[in-house]
Amino acid sequence: MSLPAYAGPGERIWYYSFRFFCGLVFLFLILPIIVIIPLSFNAEPYFSFSEGMLRLDPDAYSLRWYLDILTNGMSDRNAPFGWAWIADSWNNAQWLHSMRNSFFIAFVSTILATVFGTLAALGLSQSDMPYRNLIMSLLIAPMIVPLIITAAALFFFLSDLSLSQTYTGIIIAHAVLGVPFVVITVTATLVGFDRSLMRAGANMGANPRTVFFKIVMPLITPGMISGALFAFITSFDEVVAVIFLAGFEQRTIPRQMWSGLREQISPTILAVATIMVTLSIILLTVLELLRRRSERLRGIKPQ
């Protein structure tokens, strides 16, 4: 959409102000995420740029908040660096503990959500599926129902089963919340799926299992992985259910950030946030690569 040669001055002004406005919106979208990155290297315990930082004085920058992630909660944070220090940090540092929890919970709930979700998406894409719309609406519902309602409901339910404040409880909750994303992405992959490939396979003597593993699986794998990534990030980000269901032992990164923001606000949170932004950049890249691969596999040419 470039400016045509015959554009008048009014159109010119309109064109440039439109671009300017869009530029502002993009800034609005990205700046808040970028701004925390330099702030996380602040040498001072504040949430704003010090004069030294603006002068790019190296002394105004430090890694102390990253070190704090490793040391906060250690039994002896001033001990000399060595194996004992690493063991102490690994076992006692609060942030490391919640990172381990986050990854563990996200990993297990992603597997649950992906297996259930992919099977269901395969069923939903069959042409003979009865009550398709109704079932689809049910499967998407956990994404739509306000989190606070799901979290409160699961709190009562899991308490009755004495599963609140356990990993099992949180994993169930996160699997429920992750399922819609897997169903949506895998269903979207299957929409463009050429069913004659399955028939061709069967025609050449493959049994249904072989057809599934040799033909269907490779084609839907990109969709499955991006669904799994969505489920993973959903669990990794989720905090409302964790607030209701987790005890101290099960706290995750977002839970720790939540209490950090409400109680003792420290730039360590910015350091953690920077790490999380890096993680989302990695995930975004993986997704983009998967999308391209899927397009290539299905013979869609990039425009």
Binding site: I30, I33, I233, V239, L270, A273, M276
Partner: peptide, 17 residues
């Protein structure tokens, strides 16, 4: 990128700002 960034991270950024 904002879409994929944690809700809490974005809220933290806005508190900072």
């Amino acid at each position: 990128l904002p879409f994929w960034t944690s809700l809490l991270v974005r809220t933290t950024s806005w508190i900072t700002l």
